[in-house]
Amino acid sequence: MPAITCTTIPLPATSPPSSPTDRQTPRIKSLIVDDNGITAKVLCKILSKEFGYSTTCAVSGKEALVKLSQEVFDVIFMDIDMPELSGIETTMAIHSKGSVVLEANRTIPIIAYTTNPCDSKYFEAGMNGWVGKPANQITVRKELERVCISMSS
């Protein structure tokens, strides 16, 4: 498969680098926001083991906002149905000018990661993509490629 370049999210290689010294680009930092530890681990494994991404997990929208106020990420995978602050509410808070989120994190891609069917309200809230649970390497890669293409257009 030919490589697709994206100025927003560097895409995962076909296979992960075999060692840190094999990396030619900085490690991609992903934030997984999911209150379900099992589905978060599934996605974490795909992103870290298969693609070589660095992953950080948050178990709530509020925790995600704290992490986004302290550290810059390259992509966010956002659960939709969470207590206190839903994925949609968290996404809207990320894009809000009055939030504590670092400026660099306001424009990074946010991909819905949910058991719910894809819904236009995700995109209306400011999300850029959708991956259904349980995820697999192929669906994650295809959605990252699609999001990269749409954001670079």
Results as ranks from 00 to 15, higher is better:
residue 152 S to N: 15
residue 78 M to V: 03
residue 47 L to D: 08
residue 20 P to Q: 13
residue 25 T to K: 14
residue 131 V to E: 01
residue 117 P to N: 02
residue 32 I to P: 06
residue 51 F to N: 07
residue 106 R to Q: 10
residue 30 S to K: 09
residue 11 L to Q: 14
residue 132 G to H: 04
residue 54 S to V: 08
residue 80 I to Y: 02
residue 109 P to L: 05
residue 94 I to R: 01
residue 60 S to Y: 01
residue 75 V to S: 07
residue 20 P to C: 15
residue 31 L to S: 06
residue 62 K to T: 10
residue 55 T to Y: 07
residue 80 I to N: 01
residue 141 R to I: 04
residue 108 I to Q: 08
residue 145 E to M: 14
residue 126 G to M: 07
residue 33 V to S: 00
residue 127 M to G: 00
residue 4 I to M: 11
residue 100 V to S: 15
residue 66 V to K: 14
residue 93 A to N: 08
residue 55 T to N: 07
residue 2 P to M: 07
residue 44 C to N: 08
residue 142 K to N: 14
residue 24 Q to P: 04
residue 57 C to L: 05
residue 61 G to V: 01
residue 67 K to L: 12
residue 13 A to F: 11
residue 27 R to L: 15
residue 12 P to G: 14
residue 101 V to G: 03
residue 25 T to Y: 10
residue 43 L to S: 12
residue 72 V to I: 11
residue 100 V to L: 09
residue 74 D to Y: 15
residue 38 I to G: 03
residue 116 N to A: 03
residue 39 T to A: 13
residue 20 P to V: 09
residue 113 Y to I: 04
residue 52 G to E: 09
residue 61 G to C: 04
residue 111 I to K: 03
residue 15 S to C: 10
residue 140 V to N: 03
residue 37 G to L: 13
residue 121 K to L: 10
residue 108 I to K: 08
residue 69 S to C: 09
residue 85 L to C: 03
residue 108 I to W: 07
residue 141 R to D: 07
residue 145 E to A: 14
residue 28 I to E: 09
residue 127 M to R: 05
residue 1 M to A: 15
residue 24 Q to N: 11
residue 48 S to A: 13
residue 62 K to A: 10
residue 114 T to I: 01
residue 24 Q to I: 13
residue 135 A to Y: 08
residue 49 K to P: 08
residue 31 L to W: 06
residue 102 L to I: 07
residue 69 S to F: 04
residue 28 I to D: 08
residue 2 P to D: 10
residue 17 P to I: 10
residue 149 I to M: 13
residue 97 K to G: 09
residue 47 L to Q: 07
residue 54 S to F: 14
residue 62 K to N: 09
residue 15 S to K: 15
residue 143 E to H: 06
residue 141 R to F: 14
residue 80 I to A: 00
residue 86 S to P: 05
residue 25 T to F: 15
residue 139 T to H: 06
residue 18 S to M: 11
residue 1 M to V: 11
residue 17 P to Y: 13
residue 138 I to G: 07
residue 95 H to V: 02
residue 67 K to D: 02
residue 87 G to C: 00
residue 9 I to Q: 13
residue 45 K to P: 04
residue 109 P to M: 04
residue 59 V to Q: 08
residue 135 A to N: 08
residue 15 S to G: 06
residue 47 L to C: 08
residue 80 I to S: 01
residue 58 A to D: 00
residue 36 N to L: 09
residue 123 F to M: 13
residue 131 V to N: 03
residue 118 C to V: 06
residue 108 I to A: 05
residue 87 G to I: 00
residue 89 E to F: 01
residue 119 D to Q: 05
residue 91 T to S: 00
residue 106 R to G: 07
residue 146 R to G: 05
residue 80 I to E: 00
residue 64 A to M: 02
residue 85 L to N: 02
residue 56 T to F: 03
residue 29 K to F: 06
residue 118 C to N: 12
residue 73 F to E: 05
residue 46 I to Y: 15
residue 76 I to M: 04
residue 88 I to V: 14
residue 108 I to P: 05
residue 60 S to M: 06
residue 1 M to H: 13
residue 85 L to I: 02
residue 109 P to V: 02
residue 85 L to M: 12
residue 56 T to Y: 02
residue 33 V to G: 00
residue 52 G to M: 12
residue 89 E to K: 02
residue 114 T to A: 05
residue 41 K to N: 09
residue 57 C to N: 06
residue 42 V to S: 07
residue 71 E to Q: 12
residue 119 D to T: 02
residue 57 C to M: 06
residue 96 S to H: 14
residue 24 Q to A: 12
residue 45 K to T: 14
residue 136 N to M: 03
residue 149 I to G: 06
residue 132 G to C: 08
